[in-house]
Structures are given as C-alpha cells and as structure tokens.
Amino acid sequence: MSATIENAPKIHGGGPSIESPRSKRSPRSTKTNFELYGWLFMRLSGVLLVVLVLGHLLIQLVLDGGVSKIGFAFVAGRWASPFWQSWDLIMLWLAELHGVNGLRTIINDYAERDQTRFWLKALLYTSALIVLFLGTLVIFTFDPNIGN
C-alpha cells in the first residue's frame, strides 16, 4: 500500500498554490506595489506637510508684521538661503503630489466611464506637470537683481 501512495501524483507538490477548479480569477491583476506606495505616500507626506505648511503660513502671515511685509525684497531675502529654497521646493513637490494622488483616487472612485476617467486624469497630470515645472524653475532660477 505504501508504494502506491508514494507513486501517486503529488497534488500539493509545487508549494501552497492551488488552482481553483472552475472559477477563473477576475481580470484585474496589476502585480505592483504602486497602490501600497501611493497609500503610504499620502500618510507620510501628510505628516510632513503639516509642519511645512503651518510653518510657512506662520512665517508668511503672522510673524514680523504679518502679510504686509511680503514684497519682492522679502522673497529675494528668503530665497538667498538654500534652507528656505529647499523648504519651498520640498513643500511644492509634496503638496502637488499629495493633491494629485488624492484627486486620482477621487477620480477612480467617482468617474464611472473609462473615457471620463482617462480625460480627467490626463487633465490632472498635465496640470501637475506644469505646476511642478514652473515652481521648480522659479525656485532655482530666481534672480534677485531682476528688480534693479
């Protein structure tokens, strides 16, 4: 009897994978960690943005006479320092990507037709590219002498 059992085909031979008998998997496979990273990014960037944005608002609108102090000279002074350049650059990228990812999930949730979904996303990604490009360009190529 034991010989028969040993010669029998191994049903579970190749590890734990079992093919389901009749039903096919629904065709929605993506096999990447994209959604996982997207989800994590929202949480992490959110925490960072709380510090960056609140700090930004405090400096710009509350301290040192509030909003009235903001002028060309004020901006030029701040961007002379690499610290504030990086602050603004990180804030720009995180806020834009955070917003884009949030809108992407909202489009996925609410746009019902594939066409609508495609065009809304096309619009979203195009606008994001423009904002990120222009913002980054200004931070890096800002010329404090342009006013003279």
């Binding site: 994978s17 079992i18 929605r28 993506t30 960690n33 959604e35 996982l36 949730d109």
Partner: peptide, 21 residues
C-alpha cells in the same frame, strides 16, 4: 494556513485593500 502570501498579493492589487477609505 500557508496561502497568506498569495492572498496578500491579490489584495495588494489595484482593486484591493488600498481602495478602502
């Protein structure tokens, strides 16, 4: 159970747990 890895992979897909709000 030994199929956790496979099930997690399925729920990691586009229409998986990450769509939960």
């Amino acid at each position: 159970d030994e199929g956790a890895e496979e099930r997690l992979e399925i729920l990691n897909e586009k229409e998986g747990v990450w769509r939960c709000r």
